[in-house]
């Protein structure tokens, strides 16, 4: 069901010649949650955009399910990769139900199947289908909106889920609530997830694999435990920025 993602010596340059990513290589195994951390502007979002062909690498190759992104039809690739943004980006002129149904509609699912799927997903993200399906995005709270955003990304059951600081704009309580929900859902679905964040606590709370980006390079990629014990000063720098409480709050899986 889930799929692998491979980066092989990927370099990405802006048209001005500045290298955003330099010789990045890594593999995400099916069912893994890879969380990438790093300062703003270090190329985290670029990695996500490279995976679903919103960007193409300057050199090197990215493979999704074993096939290079350049060999994929970009539309087909994007429909197999759910995308969750910090700003959520729900379509304001559509109801919650219609928002969730966008990709199934594009894929031409029959109406009855879309309706069933929509109810199922709202249940999954913890929203009552009957009372939320007909609402418009502006009638929801920030946390509810992000739940709908996750439901929308999962609608056509894509094997890959890309999450760009999905919980960044939420208040701490809502955020930790959604962290719990995310682990519950991921426990059921076992998607291949690539998430970027600059919140180290979030990274430790959610990752099965943790990558540290610095100056366009992937300086570490390991399990969270291994990262926590690492001696590399570039990694220590991030760990020192970590407030103590979320580590304590981390629950056993």
């Amino acid at each position: 069901m889930a799929a692998s993602i491979e980066f092989e010596h990927v370099q990405y340059r802006l048209p001005s010649g500045v290298a955003v990513l330099d010789d990045v290589s890594f593999t995400v195994e099916p069912g893994d949650v890879l969380v990438l951390v790093g300062r703003s502007g270090v190329g985290k979002t670029t990695i996500l955009r490279l995976i679903n062909h919103l960007l193409l690498p300057s050199t090197g190759e990215i493979r999704v399910e074993g096939r290079a992104t350049t060999a994929w039809d970009p539309i087909a690739l994007r429909r197999r990769t759910g995308y969750v943004l910090q700003e959520v980006g729900l379509f304001p002129h559509m109801t919650v139900g219609r928002n969730i149904a966008v990709v199934p509609h594009l894929e031409g699912w029959p109406e009855a199947r879309i309706r069933a799927r929509c109810g199922e997903l709202l249940e999954l993200v913890g929203l009552d289908p009957v009372s939320y399906k007909g609402r418009f995005p502006h009638e929801l709270s920030g946390g509810q909106r992000q739940r709908v955003g996750v439901a929308r990304a999962l609608a056509a059951d894509p094997p890959v889920l890309l999450m760009d600081e999905p919980f960044g704009a939420l208040d701490p309580l809502t955020r930790s609530e959604l962290h719990r929900e995310f682990r519950r859902i991921q426990g059921q679905l076992r998607k291949t997830v690539v998430m970027v964040t600059h919140d180290m606590a979030e990274a430790f709370a959610l990752a099965t694999r943790l990558g540290v980006l610095d100056q366009g390079r992937l300086v570490a990629l390991d399990t969270p435990d291994a990262i926590a014990r690492a001696g590399d000063p570039r990694i220590r720098m991030f760990l020192e920025a970590l407030p103590p409480i979320p580590v304590i709050a981390r629950e056993p899986d």
């Binding site: 679903n52 994007r78 700003e87 304001p92």
Partner: peptide
């Protein structure tokens, strides 16, 4: 809103 348009593109429209 850029986010709305980006969401559309990223969803494979």
């Amino acid at each position: 809103d850029r986010a709305v348009r980006n969401a559309g593109v990223a969803m494979g429209m």
